[in-house]
């Protein structure tokens, strides 16, 4: 067997910060929308992400069911890449968890309050139950932490590594 063909001899390249941020965005979208679907299924919340992405525009049998949730999860995953990209551009230098939490809350306000009229399947904020509001806020807080903390932590550790390397090279010189 030639050397290149052995799977253990293939070396993978490390991901860049941007790539990692985008992957984080996608996975984060999938993960927290999955939890959102669960919360919807167990009636914690009257709305799920599918109410925004699908049910406001199509009222079909499938958009209300299991396949609708799955399809909507993918849409959220893709949209979430965008959210991660914005965080990467604007906030990556902020350290700690708080910026992420606030970012999540900001996204919640954007969709639940400002863009609310766009979505016919979503009741206006004042008509939602307290359970719904709290559940969705918490999900967004966790989602924001996930995206924000991941990106800023990765940014910081890359910076630290760069600094260490510089120190080393200056010591050698």
């Amino acid at each position: 067997m030639s050397e290149e063909k052995m799977e253990q001899n293939q070396r993978e390249k490390p991901m860049s910060l941007l790539q990692k941020s985008l992957v984080t965005g996608f996975i984060g979208g999938l993960l927290w929308s999955l939890l959102g679907s669960l919360a919807y299924y167990f009636n914690f919340s009257e709305v799920s992400h599918a109410s925004f992405t699908l049910r406001s525009f199509w009222q079909n049998q499938w958009t209300n069911g299991f396949s609708g949730e799955i399809f909507s999860m993918l849409i959220i995953g893709v949209l979430s890449i965008l959210a991660a990209y914005i965080y990467y551009l604007v906030l990556k230098k902020r350290e700690g968890m708080l910026p992420g939490i606030l970012y999540g809350v900001a996204i919640w306000f954007l969709f639940m309050y400002f863009l609310n009229p766009m979505f016919s399947a979503v009741p206006i904020l004042s008509e939602m139950t307290m359970d719904t509001i709290i559940t969705t806020v918490c999900l967004h807080v966790l989602y924001g932490t996930f995206i924000g903390y991941s990106i800023s932590f990765e940014h910081k550790s890359l910076e630290d590594m760069k600094k260490e390397r510089e120190e080393k090279s200056s010591q050698n010189a």
């Binding site: 919360a39 307290m130 359970d131 709290i134 559940t135 918490c138 807080v141 966790l142 903390y149």
Partner: peptide, 19 residues
């Protein structure tokens, strides 16, 4: 607090561990 208690409790649990 019912649902609210559970959701907020779980959120705080995750945030606590993450911090």
């Amino acid at each position: 607090y019912g649902v609210k208690g559970l959701v907020i409790g779980c959120t705080l649990y995750v945030l606590f561990l993450a911090s």
